[in-house]
Design a protein around this nucleic acid. Sequence first.
DNA 1: CTCCAGGTGGCGC
DNA 2: GCGCCACATGGA
Length: 279
Amino acid sequence: MPDRINVSDFDLAATLECGQAFRWNREADGWFTGVVGQRRLRVRQAGNTLEGDVDPRYFALDVSLPKIIATFPDDPALSGAVANHRGLRVLRQEPWETLASFIASSTKQIVQIRQIVAALADRFGEHDAFPAPDVIARATLPELATCKLGFRAKYLLAAAQAIDRGTLRLDKLPGMDYERAVEELTKLHGVGEKIAACTLLFSCGHDDAFPIDVWVERSLRRLYFPGQKITARQLRQFTRSHFGPYAGWAQQYLFFSERRRGRLPVAAADSSLASPRRP
DNA sequence: CTCCAGGTGGCGC
DNA sequence: GCGCCACATGGA
């Protein structure tokens, strides 16, 4: 793993803080520290230089972002979102940790998802690593409950057991058709279309997966269908036909822009003027 | 205190 | 199909 490389079309902060990963922290000195697999990583960006524990594959530095963006539809809504966070890349994360994290995510704020994932690693993992399926599979519901999972504890336990038993093969998902992979994941109780899409996008190379959560739905309605009566079904249909083969990347730009809406970029922030608005 | 959070499944229609 | 609602827990 190189410790210093030149990067273009990459924004480390946007990539780590856009909500796709839950185990990174920005330190006061500008370094980001996180846990990826069994490793604790420390990374920092200064201009076009990336230094520290740089894992090119994890950060998807082996793909051309301009080429991906070139596949996006040329509409003002998406162009604006891309302009807001140019350099954001979809990470290549580990499937089990990603599935588990998003099982924990339903009706939770991102801060709380981070707390749950950290608690699972702390309680069941070794050296801060996220615990493997077989470890969670042997846990009890009361033990899992100590990690603030609430009603999701039984979903996580069942998922871990399905994987441990071999009923669910996460390693097969990247090679499957998207629809087939969704079908496989949604056999799990507590895993619907949205959590399946997140797992497939963030950890299985399905770049066309387009998770629709409250934020993205809000963004789509506001930017593409203002004042119109559009059903959820119609929205899904629209996203499938409109955004192209890297729809998931487009989704992440829209998601992050919607979440940052009303909060100003650092350079323009002024506590006396900024009035954070909620939609 | 109330409201709501990167949803899902089960219900009634 | 669609519109409700419960589901645990805690941040704002």
